[in-house]
C-alpha cells in the first residue's frame, strides 16, 4: 500500500493529465447541455429586486434579461464531477499499472517517450 501511494505521488503528472482531461470533457458536456436548454431570461430574483426599492439595480431589471443571470454554470458543475471521476480513474489505472510497471513493454514505452526513470 505504501508503495502504491508512493507510486501515485511519483506519477502525479499523469494524474494531473487524467484529472484535467476528465474535467475538460465534463466542462464541454456541461456547456453542451446548457446550450441545448433555453436561457432563463427574466428570473424570479430579477422580479424580487424590482419590487425592492432600496437595492441598486439596472434601470430595466424585470424588463430586459440580465446577463449575469443567464449562466447556469453546468460546465463547472460537470467539470467538478468529471474531475472527481478522473481522480478515481487515476487511482484505478495506477493500481493496475503498478504490478505491470517493470514489464518490458511498458519499459520500452517509457524509453520511447523519453521519460526519466526515478531511481
Amino acid at each position: 500500500m505504501k508503495n502504491y501511494f508512493k507510486f501515485l505521488q511519483a506519477k502525479i503528472y499523469l494524474g494531473i493529465l487524467i484529472v484535467l482531461g476528465c474535467a475538460m470533457l465534463g466542462s464541454v458536456l456541461g456547456a453542451r447541455k446548457e446550450s441545448k436548454e433555453s436561457l432563463p431570461e427574466i428570473t424570479e430574483r430579477d422580479i424580487q429586486i424590482l419590487q425592492q426599492d432600496d437595492i441598486s439595480a439596472p434601470e430595466l431589471i424585470g424588463v430586459l434579461p440580465l446577463a449575469a443571470e443567464q449562466n447556469k454554470w453546468y460546465n463547472f458543475k460537470f467539470a467538478g464531477i468529471f474531475g472527481c471521476l478522473g481522480i478515481l480513474l487515476y487511482c484505478i489505472l495506477m493500481a493496475a499499472y503498478l504490478p505491470l510497471y517493470n514489464f518490458a513493454f511498458f519499459q520500452a514505452v517509457r524509453k520511447w517517450l523519453g521519460l526519466v526513470e526515478n531511481k
Binding site: 494531473i16 493529465l17 484535467l20 474535467a23 475538460m24 466542462s27 456541461g30 456547456a31 460546465n75 467539470a79
Partner: peptide, 11 residues
C-alpha cells in the same frame, strides 16, 4: 495542460 485548463474555464 494549459489548453485543458483554458477549456475547463471556457468550453
Amino acid at each position: 495542460i494549459g489548453i485543458a485548463v483554458s477549456w475547463i474555464l471556457f468550453p
